[in-house]
């Protein structure tokens, strides 16, 4: 029970500072789940991230998998609820008043200031995953290749994930 409450609160706190979506949270998830709580090791964290990548749905579902791995089905539900609940309540209470605040100088300033922070967080997420996976040269080449293909072609990301899976299966990563 204490573990479930801990899962709920850790993810609730995490998502209250989640600017830039779930990918931006990867470094903090890793810090809490692997380094601080020792719920998972580096390899498992990487694997769960990969599974969430390859499944349909919102990015945040890696949270569900972490909960599942730590404490089974109740853990999955506690972690998912922690992710959704706090900000859902805030949104519910604020949406009615949003039109009065939208366009206000303070809102525009915060929006402008948060954008570069989100960039740094997503880049940190990429760094974190690369580091936790312990990528060798082949892996780094794959990272670069996927990034270039994603930026310069209109290939569906699922193909790039398939490419990664094939390269990994062949032991190149």
């Amino acid at each position: 029970m204490a573990l479930l409450a801990d899962l709920f609160f850790q993810f609730a706190i995490l998502f209250c500072v989640a600017f830039g979506g779930a990918s931006a949270l990867l470094p903090e998830m890793h810090r809490v789940v692997v380094e601080q709580k020792h719920w998972l090791d580096d390899a498992t964290f990487t694997h769960l991230y990969a599974i969430a990548q390859a499944a349909p749905g919102p990015n945040g579902l890696v949270v569900t998998l972490i909960g599942w791995e730590v404490a089974g089905l109740p853990g999955a539900l506690a972690a998912t609820l922690g992710m959704c609940l706090p900000m859902s309540i805030v949104i519910y209470l604020l949406m009615r008043h949003w039109h009065r605040f939208a366009g206000h100088p303070v809102q525009l300033a915060v929006q402008m200031g948060v954008a570069p922070l989100a960039v740094g967080l997503v880049a940190a997420g990429a760094f974190m995953i690369g580091q936790a996976a312990g990528l060798a040269w082949g892996g780094l080449v794959l990272v670069g290749l996927v990034a270039l293909l994603q930026m310069h072609t209109r290939l569906h990301p699922l193909w790039l994930i398939g490419l990664g899976a094939a390269a990994g299966l062949l032991g190149w990563v």
Partner: peptide
């Protein structure tokens, strides 16, 4: 899964 994680890392870079 390591390969998929590497691909995911590349997508994040992009």
């Amino acid at each position: 899964l390591r390969g998929v994680a590497a691909a995911g890392c590349g997508l994040l870079v992009a």
